[in-house]
Amino acid sequence: MSEEKDEGQKAEEIKAEEIKAEEIKAEEIKAEEIKTEEIKAEVEAKAAAELPQSPAEAPATAVDAEREAKLKAAAEARAARAAAKEPANAGGAAPEGAVDAEREAKLKAAAEARAARAAAKEAANAGGAAPEGAVDAEREAKLKAAAEARAARAAAKEAANAGGAAPEGAEPPPEPSPKQPELDAAAKLIRSLVHEEALEDAYINEMSRHMPTIIVKNEHWAATAELLKRHEELHFTYLRNVSGVDYETHLEVVYHLVHLESRRELAVKVKADRSDPVIASATPVWATANWNEREIYDLLGVTFPGHPDLRRIMMSDDWVGHPLRKDYEPLDSEV
């Protein structure tokens, strides 16, 4: 009996020791967890200490310098505008630099140009000579240079055809354009089938990708247009664009034609008297010309007999004048 008691007591002691061991182990685990938390907190505190300061606590050098400069420039601009506005309201002069010099120069130049044109027009109406300086010197120089260049080329060409030497000082004849045969063929057909003097000129426009260009006399334009589209060797079935130009001495309409199969191109120019500009409509031949001719009629005043619906397309029907003419004077200068 006493042996059973000893065994039971021993078992209880063993169990108590196991429980105590488990409690010790739990305390050790808890201690480790506490230590881990302390280490983690220490690491986080150190990392926080190394982070940059908040924007509010950042030093002055952290401010965006570019933004500050922009704000400063905007403030200065507002101040300058206000300074310019105040003297104007008070009837005084604006401070130096407040006025846009470039705009003033443009306005002055435009005023001088208008005055020169008006003076030249008055002198022409009165039958007298235009005052000195009224003629555009730059334009005159360009026209003179172009005429001299044409004369030199013509002299060189004549000398080459005659087998002689070119006159002294003349430019050597330029290399023939690869599109010269196209131009020669078109000009030959027009002269033989429309009229011998149907063309005023035929040349290669080297500045426009060697564009073959012809100037058709006004009275032969209708017949020439039919030939350019219908003849099997020409066959310019597509009219790409029509434009109008005011050269002050005359008005000019330019038709840009394309041969769709071969991609050949041809520019056709027709001149009109500036006082009464009339050019036969190309709309019956190329329907594309319809709205283009209406625009030229509206803005330049060229009349196109044969057009199916010739009326203004941009300005109102009661509009006075043609805005793209160089002598156009608007009723309201602000419009």
Rank of each mutant, 00 (worst) to 15 (best):
E295R: 11
L257Y: 04
E233W: 09
K15D: 11
K25F: 03
V135Y: 05
E32V: 09
I204R: 04
A74T: 07
I215G: 00
A186Y: 02
Y238L: 14
R114G: 15
K10T: 10
E4Y: 03
E22G: 12
I296Y: 00
D100F: 04
K40E: 06
D184E: 07
A74Q: 08
I313W: 00
S281A: 14
G8K: 15
N205D: 06
A116E: 02
D317S: 02
V216G: 00
W221M: 14
L251A: 09
G127R: 01
E295S: 10
E66V: 14
I190K: 00
P131F: 03
A166H: 03
E23H: 13
H322M: 06
V302S: 02
A160N: 02
L143K: 13
Y328H: 09
E33H: 09
A152L: 01
A223P: 00
A113S: 08
S275D: 04
L324W: 01
I29R: 12
K229D: 04
E4C: 11
G169P: 04
T224N: 07
V99T: 07
E200Y: 04
A93V: 10
M314T: 12
W286E: 05
P173K: 06
V270L: 01
N125H: 09
S275C: 06
R103E: 02
E33K: 13
R325A: 08
A56E: 11
V135M: 10
G127M: 04
V245D: 05
E182Q: 10
A223M: 01
L300D: 05
I279D: 01
E148S: 14
L234E: 02
N241M: 10
P284E: 06
E112R: 13
P173A: 15
E50M: 11
A126Q: 11
A147D: 06
E168V: 13
A69R: 07
H231Y: 10
A149M: 08
N218A: 12
K271L: 03
I29N: 13
T36I: 10
E226I: 14
P172K: 12
A187D: 01
N218Y: 06
G164Y: 01
A186D: 00
K217M: 03
Q180N: 10
G169D: 09
Y203P: 05
R117W: 09
A65P: 00
H250K: 08
E140D: 11
S281I: 09
E196Q: 13
L227R: 01
K142H: 12
S333N: 08
L239W: 08
A69V: 02
E175A: 15
L260I: 14
H195N: 12
P308V: 12
P181H: 06
R67S: 13
Y247I: 10
E182R: 12
G97Q: 06
R311M: 06
E138T: 15
